[in-house]
Design a protein around this nucleic acid. Sequence first.
DNA 1: CAACGGCCGTTAAATATTCAACACGCGTTC
DNA 2: GAACGCGTGTTGAATATTTAACGGCCGTTG
Lengths: 191, 191
Amino acid sequence: MESVVKTDRRILRTKQSITKSFLELFSEKDFEHITINEIADRANVNRGTVYLHYSDKYDLLDKCIEEHINELISLCKKREHDTVSHGMVQEPKPVFDYFRDHFPFFSAMFSNQRAFLFRDQLLKFITVNLMVKMERSDNTPIIDNEIKAQFMASAFIGIVEWWIRHHMPQSTQFMADQVRNLFENNQVYPR
Amino acid sequence: MESVVKTDRRILRTKQSITKSFLELFSEKDFEHITINEIADRANVNRGTVYLHYSDKYDLLDKCIEEHINELISLCKKREHDTVSHGMVQEPKPVFDYFRDHFPFFSAMFSNQRAFLFRDQLLKFITVNLMVKMERSDNTPIIDNEIKAQFMASAFIGIVEWWIRHHMPQSTQFMADQVRNLFENNQVYPR
DNA sequence: CAACGGCCGTTAAATATTCAACACGCGTTC
DNA sequence: GAACGCGTGTTGAATATTTAACGGCCGTTG
């Protein structure tokens, strides 16, 4: 179907080390005080190379967020197509697993003032997922779907934030079970 | 004096990841079963790139050993020129610090059959250091200097090996003190 | 025997990255 | 104000690495 031109190993490698370096710094100090020099040094990469992939540090932050949101989307998309499971609503564990596997990133995002975009994007992602699920169920709702989705999504993110900022005191399975029950109680999908 | 052409960052980076990858594998499995493919994959580097720096895995092993021996040598050389301290005999702590700081490497070396060259090189390094020190002292020895050096060097390496293979149960300072006392008792240098 | 898969060591051309140098802005110091 | 250090963003030429291919060797499998 689409041309599968796999990207050059060097590109993957440098992008990886740049984002790793950046996220480390992001969790260490204020975003405004991070310099491209620092990022490049820690990534063991020439300063110019950073500009080859990102226009500035704001762009870098955006790309980092985008990347993870896209990962989450494709994670749910993949599972939508499965005949067995159905997205993050009925089986939220994989999503929690993803949060766990990328703890450094999400931890940095939740503990930093700078992450407006991150919250927005994540909220949109969750809301869309919930909307899709609710629209599929036939029950005519008393509460407007969009409002309910916003309500639930905010709640969900609140839980995730709490879980991450407390260094994940519970297992992903436990969290998934809890959230699924909450979704059920609020009739996000008909039991 | 000599032209200080600093080597390209890319070279340093790839050499670093290749040796890191190699030493990991070296501590995990038998040397003969390690393939260049594995090394390259784990280093996140093209297979051909390995050949750009090393002719084969034997060469790679040799270079790794050589590199650390040279580090040790320059470490001692630097301290020789100091007016205060005098090489590894009177103050062995920096040497132990070096062993500690590169524990993965030395651990791999001591726990693997393959490290003939390593033992030889290390033994030579220690012996030379001892010889130099002993020749400087005026006392006419009953025991031949070279024999004594061999004796002491083997003993020293034995201690280091024990220390490394037992995961460094004592501090470097403690080990240094012990060794200095042993050297003193055996009159490597006049007290 | 033949076919195959895996690893080796090497090559030419394409490409990503480095290096060294710009010009610029901004705050500090003398 | 001038000189300076420091970070930004950009450039062109040099260079390291990748990619995709080659032929060869060896052990396994049919």
